[in-house]
Design a protein around this nucleic acid. Structure first.
Lengths: 186, 186
DNA sequence: GGTCTCATGTAAATAGTTACATGATTTC
DNA sequence: GAAATCATGTAACTATTTACATGAGACC
């Protein structure tokens, strides 16, 4: 693998916002960057331990009443430096694997309506995603205000919105194209 | 992993077009669907063997002059049926991991100009990709003509074009946003 | 003489997900 | 009484990449 364990950078990035537990990081990822990133506990907890061993974060046990204790991690100066260095490097252009596209690409080998169904499902998924992003946009604008993080977060969120809009427009185009060549026989 | 070995479906899909060797499949992927899919030899060759063992493809040794012999695989009826069944199933919505977005998202923790640099590099990469797609579009239209595959392939290629266009438009938007909030000090 | 293309494969390593285990408290 | 939330972790498994090994012929 080209870049060793990208989970570490996600964790360090989250910890620059505030001290968090593994559970908190997971919740943050699922709430804010889930449209372009995902993390699993199976990756988060071991990586947190490794980061602590490397001195990039420090963990402390925190007692809680009425709920389980948690282990809260804080980023160290070394952690901030490592993150800053990684942020300065060009991003690795990773080729994503889109099953939707793959299934449409080989559509001629499937049942007649299958490719159109993929387009229609994609439209529904994208419409739902778009609605969620727009809600989040309002929320982020309100909560972040003029924080130093605001422009970065808003830029990325706008990216999600533009992406979803482009996919929706493409769905119409693709549907027309496929319908024209494979007239519905039912 | 939810879907067992998606490489198999790529191989079967390719073999519906014509009999191919592992090397041919790799070349086809890199030539036509590389913008949303990638395959490595380390995955292709073992999977081809497994598919043969399952009776979904048959391989034959082909002698060549002036170049190495090759092993050419042909899809069987069972292979076509398996592929058609997979194509009929809804695609699994896999969350991609965009390093570009991640680095911009946490931009406040990096060097001042870093996030803008990511946007600018992304613009260059997308512009190059867009140019390549447009060339391929002309080529595909000419070569596929009114083949049964044409509408599917063109639809997917158009998807790549729309995506690249949307990214380019977003880059302008993001650059303006980031410049407004983090005035260039150099 | 060096590099590129053609061609097949294996081994080692890593990345990542899923399932399991545990258990208290809160909400429906 | 059931299900969800909070909370941490491990083990098993799968997917996937990268590096290595081999070797002939074509091209510059």
């Amino acid at each position: 693998m080209r870049s060793e364990n990208r989970t570490r950078w996600v964790i360090l990035g989250c910890l620059t916002l505030e001290p968090m537990s593994g559970y908190d990081v997971k919740a943050f990822v699922d709430r804010t960057i889930v449209h372009f990133w995902s993390e699993s506990y199976g990756q988060l907890y071991p990586t947190l331990k490794a980061l602590e061993a490397q001195g990039l974060v420090t963990g402390r046990h925190e007692r809680q009443e009425g709920r389980p204790d948690k282990r809260v991690y804080t980023i160290t100066e070394a952690g901030r430096a490592a993150l800053a260095a990684w942020l300065a490097e060009p991003a690795e252009p990773v080729v994503p694997r889109y099953e939707h596209s793959l299934k449409i690409f080989f559509g001629a080998s499937g049942p007649p309506e299958a490719a159109l169904d993929h387009v229609r499902r994609l439209r529904e998924e994208s419409a739902a995603a778009l609605a969620a992003y727009r809600e989040r946009e309002v929320e982020v604008e309100a909560r972040l205000g003029d924080s130093e993080h605001a422009p970065y977060r808003l830029a990325v969120l706008t990216g999600g919105i533009r992406y979803a809009e482009a996919v929706l427009a493409w769905c119409d185009e693709a549907e027309a194209l496929l319908e024209a060549h494979a007239p519905p026989g039912n």
